[in-house]
Design a protein around this nucleic acid. Structure first.
Length: 452
RNA sequence: GGAGAGGUGGCCGAGUGGUCGAAGGCGCUGGACUGGAAUUCCAGUAAUACCCACAAGGUAUUCGUGGGUUCGAAUCCCACCCUCUCCGCCA
């Protein structure tokens, strides 16, 4: 296969959904696939993913053969073409030399076509393969096997029946789901007045916390991105149905999370060791089609087509990525701690973990209105999975060579759900809501939101 | 949206069909010189895939992207993307 990633190779997306810089099968480490196939198969099986081993082995073997053939034919062409050039420069007769290469062109293009086809098949196969799991990931097929790692805070005892955020919001006069329905349809919301301000205060508080205390750099990013960008972080080609694609040319998708633009900041780059770790934080809206979630969480703000999130992304040296995951999770936890919200940390099990992640912690916040913990943050170490797709590398001083970085992301945290949690946890019997102390400076000192 | 110019290695920049992966310069690395440094001089300085032990060595590919012409393309043709300048419009 020819050069993987020339500079600026992000122009136009090829048909299959493979991008210029994702053309290599390096979705998993191709060397691992060749040398430790059994271990990989076993690891993927923990997710319940069955790797088509025979098909892969066969395709890879044929690809290699074909590539050797192509290389040899090209070598012959180059050699002979040079000879023709030299002969002509000498003024020698070149007709016999031309006759020698007569069939070369067709043989070469046949072999090249075969190679392209094989490569496309391999890509299609490998772009579907999820990341390998870290050894510490709990076994299990679905969310019932997730493991609680720790809890923080005690769910508050109410001496009245706690309302849910929809009732609270409507009573406060700042949540209008009907209006959103008229404007856009289901799963959208209109916030106004104190609720809109509280929403903004939450985002701003989170940004300030992460930039001032956790060492993140605040970034403003595009909300519309290209197909190669979506492919780099793993949303494409497999999960196109989950995304909103906007009409028109050039093709663009609405981001489902700021992880996409933030992580792709490292795409196509070879970072100096001294630049690492990179820590980015961004507050953006997120757009998700929620295909396949019909009937789930239809009430209120929990599951929306559009919601705001403060996202944390780290680009780190591979050796540091698991410590970074613990730290990043702690950064997200700090948000909930400062807001005085009870939560627990869950280690996702093999069957529940996301496509590109090697290990994930979910933060679940206590929602009195539902009487249960609900996800409010998800913190993942993607190891080199995304880095290989997007060719995000660093110059390893030990080897002197460019090697994939490790990428991590985590919500720090989902703003909409944080709003839900603040409303429900802070509610009083009279329908008012007490504002967490850390948010008051953002609200002109207001301590309590009361119904009009 | 209209008109024009342009996209070459980490950067600048030469190169309009033939040993061009690409002159020259800058930067960087190593060495010489020095008490140390500067200056100067010498050498080196891409990525990816494949063969192979991820060694040495070799082959292929990459001059915005894709396609075409040709024995041979950075160089010719087509389409697209992007950048810059001017005009229009606009936050």
């Amino acid at each position: 296969m020819p050069g993987r990633l020339p500079r600026g190779a992000r122009a136009r997306a090829p048909p299959v959904g493979l991008t210029d810089h994702c053309r290599s099968p390096n979705v998993l480490d191709i060397r691992l696939l060749r040398t430790e196939l059994e271990r990989i198969v076993a690891n993927l099986a923990r997710r319940g993913y069955v790797l088509a081993v025979d098909r892969f082995t066969d395709l890879e073997r044929r690809r290699k053969e074909t590539q050797v053939t192509v290389d040899a034919l090209r070598n012959e062409r180059n050699t002979r073409s040079k000879a023709i050039g030299q002969a002509r420069a000498r003024g020698a007769e070149i007709a016999p030399l031309l006759a020698e290469v007569e069939t070369l062109g067709s043989r070469l293009s046949a072999a090249e076509q075969a190679l392209t086809a094989l490569q496309a098949e391999l890509d299609a196969l490998l772009f579907d393969v999820p990341n390998l799991l870290h050894d510490s990931v709990p076994l299990g097929a679905d969310d019932t096997a997730n493991v609680e790692v720790r809890r923080h805070g005690e769910p508050r005892r109410f001496d009245f029946e706690p309302a849910d955020h929809v009732a609270l919001g409507e009573r406060l006069g700042g949540l209008d789901l009907d209006a959103a329905g008229r404007l856009s349809g289901a799963r959208f919301s209109v916030l106004s007045g104190p609720l809109a301000a509280l929403h903004r205060a939450l985002a701003q508080f989170m940004l300030d916390l992460h930039t001032r205390e956790h060492g993140y750099r605040e970034v403003y990013v595009p909300y519309l991105v290209s197909r190669p960008t979506m492919t780099g972080t793993g949303q494409l080609p497999k999960f196109e149905a989950d995304l909103f694609r906007v009409a028109g040319e050039p093709e663009r998708f609405l981001i489902p999370t700021a992880e996409v633009p933030l992580t792709n900041l490292a795409a196509d780059r070879i970072l100096a060791a001294a630049e690492l770790p990179l820590r980015f934080v961004a507050h953006t809206p997120c757009f998700r089609s929620e295909a396949g979630s019909h009937g789930k969480d239809t009430r209120g703000l929990i599951r929306q087509h559009q919601f705001d999130k403060v996202e944390l992304v780290q680009i780190v040296r591979p050796a540091d990525s698991y410590q970074a995951l613990e730290e990043l999770t702690g950064h997200a936890e700090r948000v909930l701690q400062r807001l005085d919200l009870p939560y627990r940390v869950i280690a996702l099990c093999a069957g529940d973990i996301g496509f590109g992640s090697a290990k994930t912690y979910d933060l679940e916040v206590w929602l009195p209105g539902q009487g249960r913990y609900r996800e409010i943050s998800s913190c993942s170490n993607c190891e080199a999975f995304q880095a290989r797709r997007m060719l995000a590398r660093w110059r390893n001083p030990d080897s002197g060579r460019p090697e994939p970085v490790h990428t991590l992301n985590g919500s720090g945290v989902a703003v909409g759900r944080a709003l839900v949690a603040v409303l429900e946890n802070g509610q009083q019997a009279d329908g008012s809501v007490s504002v967490p102390a850390v948010l008051r400076p953002y609200l002109g000192g207001v301590e309590r939101l009361a119904p009009p």
